[in-house]
Design a protein around this nucleic acid. Sequence first.
DNA 1: CGTATGGCTCCTC
DNA 2: CGAGGAGCCATAC
Length: 106
Amino acid sequence: MTKEQVLLKMRSHTPFRQAVWKACMAIPAGQTRSYKWIAEQIGRPGAVRAVGSALGKNPFAPIVPCHRVIRSDGNPGGFSAPGGVKAKLKLLKKEKARLPGLLRQA
DNA sequence: CGTATGGCTCCTC
DNA sequence: CGAGGAGCCATAC
């Protein structure tokens, strides 16, 4: 599954989701962004929760790095994908991403 | 088709 | 430090 394939399948979903997912893909590898950051990128600064919903329903788990999206506090937040927050942290550690004030274990 | 409820949140009191 | 409200989208009934 390539990014272009994902972009193509996105068209079957709502434009809002597309924007959210695209913004996620725009995050540099090994780095993290906040939900608010995504919301602002898509032009919906007040739709942080909607962004979370979109990411939670993200059908393109590995292609769209929704795990790079964390809270503004630096907390990992939540993760609906299999493995939960633990998997999220695992992926971030795998990418050598540094979280501001996150538990260094698990 | 319209209404009601939930969500990986954020900000202010 | 803790609790509550706000504003946005998608899904289910």
